[in-house]
Amino acid sequence: MSDNLVIETRDLTKAYGKFMAVKGLNLRIAEGEVFGLLGPNGAGKTTTILMLMGFCEPTAGSVRIMGYDPVREPIRVKSVVGYMPEKIGFYDDMTARENLEYTGRLNGLAGSRLTARINELIDIVGLRDRADQPVGKYSHGMKQRLGIADVMVKQPRIAIFDEPTSGIDPEGTDQVLNLVRTMARQKVTVIISSHQLHHLQKVCTGVGIFSRGRMIASGPVDKLGRDALRKGNYNIVLPIAQLTDRVRSEISRIPGVFSIDSTADSTIVSAEEDISGEIERVVLEATGLKVQMKVEEFELEEIYMKYFEGSGTGI
């Protein structure tokens, strides 16, 4: 795994006077991941992103973006990393196309290659009809989509989005998230920070939860959920309300199973491992039926609330 890490920070720290914006952050993001940064305002998400971009210098610790130091080798980092700031702006009196052309030229692109690339991007973000209008006339959602096109002009290996869905309507949000998925499919590593947890859950392969400058948990959403809400155990849900005693005892004999509970319309087996395959086999042998079962999934919202329970820091 470690050979294709594209982002790695070691004990990354940023202090403003006595205030620690980010403390001892160890972030490891592998190629192709869609990593979500979440946490309340002031938790250090944006500061982390700024340090990844080399926009502010770390007080201590190190950052490596594809092996480069963003402070010492900013040009190398910025030619592979696309960044969409929280409050993105364009030149309002220039058209979307002209804005993208400018970005392209700053990236050393020109001529027919740049034109073709821009046409392609305008199609991808769905701005074909409005591409030759001044950006000043764009809605917030359209500007966000143009922002994604702007990030993609340079064909980045890594794309960083700071709050890309804040303040836009549900339709616009869906469009933005779909575009992020499109990028992920093209093997672009994506970092995305957001308050809107269900948005992150839709697109992220992994998340990091930030609180007061620390990343207090990180990993795939289901693992975080098990850790936070089920003490690391798996709950396997069978859509059968009443198990016969024989099946029940067969299941309880599977190693790792420690409880079987029945609810009104299903049975929940708790175990230390994902034993859904075992259960399926046992039930098949005992009854001759093939049951559909699933491992319990978690809402990021629930996990998040669990972490911030009683800490007094709201979302």
Binding site: P74, S79, Y83, L106, N107
Partner: peptide, 13 residues
Amino acid sequence: SGNLSRLLAQPIY
């Protein structure tokens, strides 16, 4: 106008 961060994220000094 929000252009500064965007511009400086490009590979320019």
